[in-house]
Amino acid sequence: MSNDVFEQIKQDISQNDIVLYMKGTASFPQCGFSATVVQILSQIGAPFKDINVLENADIRQGIKDFTNWPTIPQLYIKGEFVGGCDIVRDMFNSGELQDMLAEKGITSPRAA
């Protein structure tokens, strides 16, 4: 995978608190798994940058090589790969995702 794809990825995940590599866009997800993560982030009220991998084949493959993770969507928080749909959903259900966002100062802490 070419270096400039990795550079583009590194730039996106460092310049944005939350980045979601997905199929489609936040307003028009084109895959159930991507839509689930969009819904979770919207429910939490966490602003994020959506990157539509369907518009860029290099990014679509590059992101999988970058993380050694074979599927889309992929969620990044403060430059760190958090997981795909399953992990994000599990973390949301347990409250771990909300706590992580609050700890990193992206959202306000959950009401006790």
Partner: peptide, 15 residues
């Protein structure tokens, strides 16, 4: 980590 656990499962599925 969860990610590492899932990566183990994906490796077992050989691509």
């Amino acid at each position: 980590s969860r990610v590492q656990q899932h990566q183990m499962v994906y490796r077992a599925l050989q691509g």
